[in-house]
């Protein structure tokens, strides 16, 4: 029962990151917009990982934009689940039953 609930929750995340994300608004977000309007956007420095294989939510080498973005999203969900799930599993209090 709980396993099925977890599976559905994960499935929703994968669909959002892998598919729905393609349709996200491409307009600058609130902070970027304010930075542009108020003239401090130029202060932004390049990201250390801008050339990383996953930079800007795309997989380098995959040319199809929909596929590249979707794949990056699914990889991100998997990475977050692995890092977060691993951390929380270690931190959790152990039940006496083990």
């Amino acid at each position: 029962m709980t396993k099925r609930f977890f599976f559905v929750f994960l499935l929703v995340a994968v669909i959002i990151a892998g598919f729905v994300s393609f349709y996200a608004s491409a307009s600058p977000d609130g902070l970027t917009k304010v930075a542009e309007d108020k003239g401090f956007a130029s202060q932004e420095k390049d990201h250390q990982f801008k050339d990383s294989p996953l930079g800007d939510y795309g997989v380098k080498g995959v040319d199809n934009e929909r596929l590249s973005g979707g794949l990056a999203g699914v990889i991100g969900v998997g990475l977050t689940l692995a890092v977060g799930g691993g951390l929380f599993w270690v931190v959790r209090r152990r039940s006496s039953a083990g």
Partner: peptide, 25 residues
């Protein structure tokens, strides 16, 4: 966190990663 909520917390983080990809106008 316990045996039930630890996996939920990992999934919550993964869900937030996904949801943050959705910029809405």
């Amino acid at each position: 966190l316990d045996d039930r909520t630890a996996p939920l917390a990992g999934l919550t983080a993964a869900f937030i990663f996904a949801a943050q990809m959705i910029n809405f106008p």
